[in-house]
Design a protein around this nucleic acid. Sequence first.
DNA 1: ATATGACTATTTATTCATATTTGGTCAATC
DNA 2: GATTGACCAAATATGAATAAATAGTCATAT
Lengths: 242, 242
Amino acid sequence: MSRDENIGRKDVSKRVERAHRILDVAAALILRWGYNKTTIDDVAREAGVAKGTIYLHWRTREDLFRALIRRERVDMAEEVKQSISQDPMGATLRGILKHLALVIMKRPLMKALLLRDLDVIGKLAHSGNDTFAYMEKLTGFNSYLETLRDHGLIRADLNLKAQMYIFNAIFMGFFLTMPLMPEGFTLSDDEIADLMAETVHCTLEGNLSISADDLKAVSLAFMQYLDHAVAAAKEHLQQELQ
Amino acid sequence: MSRDENIGRKDVSKRVERAHRILDVAAALILRWGYNKTTIDDVAREAGVAKGTIYLHWRTREDLFRALIRRERVDMAEEVKQSISQDPMGATLRGILKHLALVIMKRPLMKALLLRDLDVIGKLAHSGNDTFAYMEKLTGFNSYLETLRDHGLIRADLNLKAQMYIFNAIFMGFFLTMPLMPEGFTLSDDEIADLMAETVHCTLEGNLSISADDLKAVSLAFMQYLDHAVAAAKEHLQQELQ
DNA sequence: ATATGACTATTTATTCATATTTGGTCAATC
DNA sequence: GATTGACCAAATATGAATAAATAGTCATAT
């Protein structure tokens, strides 16, 4: 490794560190004041950099916040991956749902994004309603469901599209019901996650007896996929933050 | 029956008829233009009455639309009752859910109310956020669940609060997911209703074997309750429209 | 080369005056 | 007595003109 590259490396790591510091501030401010009322000046001041510095990282204000969202997603994916890998049943449908739910509940920004909380994401909701990425995610999930089905880990008497819809409805339903329940009918995050998992289990996994081999195979395939996807996303993010 | 009362009757029936005509127009206009942009003048013109006449029925604009919503609820309840009574399994949890869902899907106004579609209900959403009536409905549903449980028609290994939450989450989830699914992943109303029922069945009813006696008992109790509640609501509505 | 913050061109918020719409009333009419 | 629609006050929309806030730039400093 030449000296030039070394120097470059050092510079880059400093830059990335600063980018993260700025995003940290942006995350705190968007949750405190909402996207519409969070200014670049605020972010710069709180992050201890000049405004111009922020524009050395991102071309526009929106770019900055979109980067924040991407980072949030990557961090979440990493956390979910860890969580799943520690649970023998983690790669089952109910496992994924439960771990995903618990991680999201701990992350106010992800929760706000999922629930489309306009107080937080404001105009960020309208612009760039990335349906392409969404479709991509859905089709990715589709192939995961196919794998599960091939290994007998979900019911075979329901078509994929239906199972897809059911999974989505349960996922969104449990989250969206949270703020709708009146006093006395609310449940804790952990209870909700468990019930979500239970619902998916009963409806999509049925009372199929899980073969250890199939579970192992699916877990391996899924973790391998997740490892790869998360690593790529992290790499991509690192690159993006230079 | 004296002649006075007869004359009164006739007048009242005319009045009620007119009230319904006005509400019909209000329903059409609120769906076409939304609450905020539907004026009393519009309603009066379309209904073929003078504006003053409307104020002979309701004290304010909001009262008119709240009456419309009450009527919609009563009509819906009546329709659900009919639908359930024709289905042997109608009074089971999955039966109720399915019939309720199908009826709502056919009623744009109910759908808009359920989904809190601000384009339709506009400022009507904020004012009078009737949590009391909501609580009442929830506790009513609670006791229905208790009856089901006593007759072994739903699982006994989940507490009522949890089952309540699950039911709500499934119900809302399937409805709210409808507009969120992209092209190619959508399902028909009937498919969605069936999947909703299936989900509730798997999760809350389990694979319990239903005793014919218990089913009969629950159906009877439920239909009796529904009959009574709907009749009272209708009576109340009739009274309200004078 | 990197970072800064004063600077500017836009955007957004505020104000104020005017015009229009609309909820609700009530004297006149049927 | 029931119904009407002209009428009014209040609310809402429109627009101009001004002020304030803010995104993004760039000459200068480190």
